[in-house]
Each structure stands twice: as C-alpha cells, then as structure tokens.
Design a protein around this nucleic acid. Structure first.
Lengths: 222, 222
DNA sequence: CCAGTTTTATTACAATTGTCATATTCCTTC
DNA sequence: GAAGGAATATGACAATTGTAATAAAACTGG
C-alpha cells in the first residue's frame, strides 16, 4: 500500500481526499496536516511515500515545504494541489522539485492513477484531465528557467478567458456574440486559438477544462 | 441577513457550505445539523429563514423533516440538496413542500442566488446550472401527482448514463465507440435521446451536466 | 413459436463547429 | 502620417455533430 500524507488547510478538501483514497486498496492515508509546519513534522515522523500538498497553506506555504522536505528526503514524492489561477506559484514549486501537479476537482480515477504513477516512476504525472494544464505550466516554467522572452509563452488573453467561461456555461457561438461584441467568425477563430494553446480538440473539452480548472468562478476584467 | 440552517450528515459538505455562505454578507449560518432529529430541533429553537437540507440523513430523512417542519411553520423555506441519482426521493419531498432543489457541487454564485430567491419569493429556484435537472424532477413529480402511467417519465437508461459520462470526459463519438460497443449512428441517436430527456442542446451542455450533477463519479453497472 | 418491445443500425440530411488563408480595422510609436 | 502589430472580420471549406425516419436484430412473455 502506498502511504499518503494529505496536506491542506481546508478541512473540506482533506476529508474529501481521505474519503476518496480510503475506498481504493492501493492507498493508505497515514496522516493529514493542516499547515506547513505540521506537514514537515508529519513527513518526518510518518515517512509517507507520497504527499498531496496544497500550494496555499498557512504557517509555511506549499512551495517552502517542498524544498524543505525534498532537501531532507528526496525519495518522498510530492504532488501539488492547485487551482488554475495560482500561476505565480507554479514556477517555484517546479524548481523546488515537486513531482506533479493536480487540479483540485480532479476525478477519483485520475487522482488515484496519478499518485500511483508518481510513486512508481517518480515521473511527472499527466492525468487525463490535468494533462493539458500541466503542459501549459511546464511551458511557463521552462520559459522562466531559460529566461526566454515572454512573447512566445502561450498565455490566454482576457477575451480568450471570457470565451472559455462562456463555453463552460454551455453557450453556442451565436450566444457568445450577445455576451462579447464580436462576429461569429472572430469567435470561431478565437476558439481555434484556445484549442491550440490548451492542446484540446473541441469545445466540449474546453467546457470541461473551464469547470475543472476553476476558471468558471473567476471574474475576468477586460 | 438571511438566517440559514445547514442540515447534512457529511461534515465535509456542512463545512464547505458554511464556508461558502460565510463569505457572502447576505447570509448568516445560524446552525448546522447532522441528522434529521437535530434539524427539527434546531429549526424550532433557532427559527431559520432557510434550511439547506440533504435528502439522505440518518435518524430522520430529509423528506420526513420537510413534512414535519413545514407542518409546524410553513414560512421556513427549505431547499433540498440532492445528487442526480436520488430520483426516488424527489417525488415525496416535492409533495411535502420543499421550496427548491440544488445539486451538490453547484457553484457558489448559483447557491447564494438560489437561497435568496427562495427566501424572497418562496418561488422554486432555477439556478442556471441546476435548471435543467430541476425540470426533469418537475416532470417526474407531475406525472406522480397526476398518476399518469410511468411510461412517459423520461428516465435515463444505463447506456445513456454511460454515454453522458464519456461525453463528460471529453470523448468524441468515435472514441465512445471504443468504450461501448455500438455503431456511431446508434451513439448519435442515443445522444439525441439524452438531449431531449435533459432538455439540453448539444454535447457541450451534456458534458457540463455530467460534471455538475456528479454523474462523472458514479460507477454505472450494465 | 409468435407478437410486441427494446436495442441497435442505417441512411440521408441539416446545423454547428473548427480550420485556414487572407483581409480590414484600429492602435501604437517613431 | 507611415510602418508595424494587434484585434477583428470574412469566406470557403472540412469535419463533426445532431435529427429523423425507418429497418433489422435481439430479447421477452405468453
């Protein structure tokens, strides 16, 4: 059994994660930490195989934790839990040696498989649903490390974000026209752009992405 | 401020609901009950404006609670929390006078608006995301009240459920073929069926429905 | 086995979606 | 105001998706 430590300040998420993992015989949740300090202490005393760690935590944030824990024992695998909007933190946790990223709101199957993958190979995980996001993050991180000009990072513009949101609410192209004042052709073009950037295939996958990445809940300012 | 009582046996959900509502100044969570008996007691002692109530609860289930509470004080508004799979219970809670339904996993905005709507008008709520589901429920309830033959209730078959799931994972029709052994034409027909039954327009909306109704996480037995 | 129902398939068609090359317009900035 | 770049638009096209009518196959209860 893979020994898992859960680290998140939200009781909500801790409990739901534990519940999820407890129904799969591959995993044993050996502890739950509610802040950075607890996480570090428990990773010492309990010696988990994998830590599921929220990026935002009180006392000591996830990124610092990764560094400290990895410095002390590099064999402990760490998967960061993140929402789509915490871009700024991604760079540093990658640099500090996190083994994977997961979007909160991932499906049970994907979560379990990801833990197993990370545990087995130490390889970075790419569960079905988070795969695309992960790629973006990797790209961003890469350009951060290589100090490449930011031009060729494929970031989403605010129009694109807006369109993603609307698709995530089930709007057709014609309905999108009423929300943002663009011609249908232009909207089509934007959607093509979005598909390329996110490496998705069709609007349905955009909708799924919108929901699972938490983008739906964001206020997008023009 | 609207006084809200939360009734759910899952701590997880109670806490997340409280957390959600606490960030909105329109609401004040005045109590949280973990079973039917507590709910009834607290609704007496605390006199809430609105109760968010899970349908499945120990001691006394949500439906019985609705009846008892509504009999005693009809001005207390009650919103049932439900997952898509608890069809059987819907009829009775409607009959007992529940004021609204919400799918667990609804967005914050929709939840808050729903509470307010129910509080203001006593009218039944139809937040954007739950609207379609609600319609189905209404249809079912209607046919229950009118004692119409059950034939014309549009329930989802297990194949349909399965297809909804796959669409919710972003599969194209061709990809669905590999998962369930049917011709593409047949799958198309099934999707048409699903769209009619759920009163949706296209596969993107099906995907959204799949995620938000929790259907994605369900194991569907053939 | 037969009649009736359900499930699956086929076909043809319409609508929507996605792609691409190529404008046009608008906004900077020099 | 000219040059260049971004945002927006257009049109033609292909692919996918959705609809509907109809048929064949599989299953079911008598």
């Amino acid at each position: 059994m893979i020994k898992v430590l859960i680290a998140d300040d939200q009781e909500l998420l801790r409990d739901s994660l534990e519940l999820l993992l407890s129904t799969d015989e591959r995993f044993e949740v050996i502890g739950m930490a509610k802040d950075g300090r607890e996480t570090i202490n428990m990773s010492n005393s309990l010696n988990p195989d994998v830590i599921l760690m929220d990026i935002r935590m009180p006392e000591q944030n996830g990124i610092e934790c990764v560094k400290i824990i990895k410095d002390r024992n590099n064999s402990i695998k760490i998967i960061m839990l993140t929402t789509f909007d915490s871009d700024e933190y991604i760079y540093n946790s990658l640099k500090n040696g996190a083994d994977g990223f997961l979007l909160k709101g991932i499906s049970k199957k994907d979560l379990c498989n990801s833990i197993e993958t990370v545990y087995d190979g130490g390889a970075s995980i790419e569960p079905e649903t988070a795969q695309k996001v992960f790629r973006i993050f990797c790209k961003m991180a890469k350009s951060f490390f290589t100090n490449q000009p930011e031009e060729d990072i494929e970031e989403l513009s605010s129009v694109e974000m807006k369109i993603i949101q609307l698709i995530g609410r089930g709007y057709s192209n014609k309905e999108i026209i009423n929300e943002i004042n663009l011609s249908e052709g232009t909207i089509r073009n934007y959607i093509s752009q979005i598909l390329k950037k996110l490496d998705l295939r069709d609007r349905t996958q955009i909708a799924i992405f919108a929901i699972q990445s938490g983008l739906l809940l964001k206020e997008i300012d023009e």
